[in-house]
Amino acid sequence: MWWTLGLVLLIIKLTIVISVLFGFAAYMVLVERKLLGRFQIRYGPNRVGPFGLLQPLADGLKLIIKEDFVPRSADRLVFLTAPAVVAAVPLVIAAVIPFAADFTIGGTRIPMVITDLNIGMLFVLALASLAVYGVALGGWASNSKYSLLGAIRGSAQLISYELSMGLSLVPVVMIAGSFSLVDIVNAQARLPFILVQPVSFIIFLISAMAESNRIPFDLPESENELIGGFHTEYSGMRFGLFFVGEYVSMIVLGALTTVFFLGGWRGPLLPSLFWFLFKTMLIPLFFIWTRATLPRLRYDQLMHLGWKFLLPVALINIVVTGGVMLLMGW
């Protein structure tokens, strides 16, 4: 009966992770709007429920009951599936993220990760590249020039920044000596990698922002010039999926940052789950703060930053790390 128990556990873990992610994503929207409001000396949403707490519910309800509109000239099948891709990818990534210290019931050690893949990091990187399909296909299938332009920008941007993101993680792997995210967390028992690899951390953070299409890297959407970019033609819950996908991926990126650089679930005194969630939330909050602070980059600036700054710095960082490791004989 070992596998039944495993299955049950898996389902429980899955349910918890997914609902927590969605819940967080929904409230992340509220938090973002509230914070943005305050950053701009406004209140933010405060009409639905006390302090606007029911706003996410109202938003969701609105999105669900809105007309699901498909443009006549759109490629129907692709148009309908693209949002699902965007929403699903970060969920799948979440599967390899260890979110707390292992847990023991009756002698059975239950790992607090849905699945501990020994090539977890490669899995994460591979899936992260998949997300661009949602954007590209959604934009293309809409058969609208704004959407197509958004999609093209999205693809170019994701491909550019994936590179530096991957490279920024190489030193982490080098030091941890493993691709497994669990191992990486364990390798930070003494020192979180943010202290060992600050340059990597910054590159990763910037790339993560770009990967999640957040300001200042929201060129694929850029309301001012492309109306809504790749999701211009979407409405109702399909638009909602794009939206949720963005927030889930923000949280997942937060979790990944935590795992790679902030020591994962490790922390003093308080339970490991708390530490994990706390650290995870810091990153989206930082994203929001950035949104309130920085304007959108121009396309050439975006490319310049990615290819001429982040990429060389990441490469140098790898060489330096390698050199140091060689010297120190790690």
Partner: peptide
Amino acid sequence: GLADSYAVTLKHLFRKPITEQ
């Protein structure tokens, strides 16, 4: 420069909103 801008927005976070209700 970046740090400066982040500081400005952070400062605003603690001001009282001017919105009229």
